[in-house]
Amino acid sequence: MRSLIYLATALCVMGLAFWAYRVNYDTQDKRDELRALDREIASLNEGLGVLHAEWAYLNRPDRLRELVNLNFTDLELLPLQADQFATVSEIPYPNPVEMADPDAPQEPDVLAQNGQAAKNGQAPKEGL
């Protein structure tokens, strides 16, 4: 009986040694992968820094102004004017009733029609 206990104990020790061996090498592999990922992240961050510097260099106002002047006849770029932006009344906000019940019958959107009419050069329609 004693020999059976010794044999079981020896097998348990060998099994635990094998498990510890595998865990040790798996940990080392994961550590190597982590180091490789850290190197890749550092390389990508360095590349990102270079791209930010290049973007800043290419977007210098004096350089852009010179490009606009050189390509004015082709691009016809002009400064923005205040009348190029839409007004708040031209924004088609959803009707709160439609939001509550999407299956309810819908009335025509007067604001959207007025905005479309204004874009087409027509006089806006008055309320329904």
Rank of each mutant, 00 (worst) to 15 (best):
Met1Ser: 12
Arg2Asp: 15
Arg2Gln: 14
Ser3Tyr: 12
Leu4Val: 02
Tyr6Met: 01
Tyr6Asp: 14
Thr9Ile: 07
Thr9Asp: 09
Thr9Pro: 08
Ala10Tyr: 02
Ala10Cys: 04
Leu11Arg: 03
Leu16Ala: 14
Leu16Lys: 07
Leu16Trp: 09
Trp19Lys: 04
Ala20Cys: 09
Ala20Asn: 12
Ala20Pro: 10
Ala20Val: 07
Tyr21Phe: 14
Tyr21Gly: 13
Asn24His: 14
Asp29Gln: 10
Asp32Gly: 03
Glu33Ile: 08
Leu34Asn: 01
Arg35Asp: 00
Ala36Gln: 14
Leu37Ser: 04
Arg39Cys: 02
Glu40Gly: 06
Ala42Asn: 05
Ala42Gln: 13
Leu44Ser: 10
Leu44Gly: 00
Leu44Met: 13
Leu44Arg: 13
Asn45Lys: 15
Glu46Lys: 07
Gly47Met: 11
Leu48Glu: 01
Val50Cys: 02
Val50Glu: 13
Leu51Asp: 05
Ala53His: 08
Glu54Asp: 15
Glu54Phe: 08
Trp55Leu: 14
Trp55Ser: 15
Tyr57Arg: 11
Arg60Val: 05
Arg60Pro: 01
Asp62Pro: 08
Asp62Val: 03
Asp62Glu: 15
Arg63Ser: 08
Arg63Gly: 03
Leu64Cys: 10
Arg65Ile: 06
Arg65Glu: 01
Glu66Ile: 06
Val68Pro: 01
Val68Lys: 03
Val68Asn: 06
Leu70Asp: 07
Phe72Pro: 04
Thr73Gln: 12
Thr73Ala: 15
Thr73Glu: 15
Asp74Arg: 07
Leu75His: 09
Leu75Met: 11
Leu78Ile: 09
Pro79Asn: 03
Leu80Trp: 03
Leu80Lys: 08
Asp83Gln: 09
Gln84Tyr: 04
Phe85Arg: 11
Thr87Leu: 13
Pro94Gly: 07
Asn95Glu: 06
Asn95Lys: 02
Glu98Pro: 06
Glu98Thr: 05
Met99Asn: 10
Asp101Arg: 13
Asp101Thr: 00
Pro102Glu: 04
Asp103Ala: 05
Asp103Gln: 05
Gln106Cys: 11
Gln106Ser: 12
Gln106Val: 05
Glu107Arg: 14
Asp109Glu: 02
Val110Gln: 09
Val110Tyr: 00
Gln113Thr: 09
Asn114Leu: 06
Asn114Ile: 12
Asn114Gly: 07
Ala117Ser: 11
Ala117Met: 14
Gly121Arg: 03
Pro124Thr: 02
Lys125Asp: 13
Lys125Arg: 13
Lys125Ser: 13
Lys125Cys: 09
Glu126Ser: 14
Glu126Tyr: 03
Leu128Asp: 12
Leu128Gln: 11
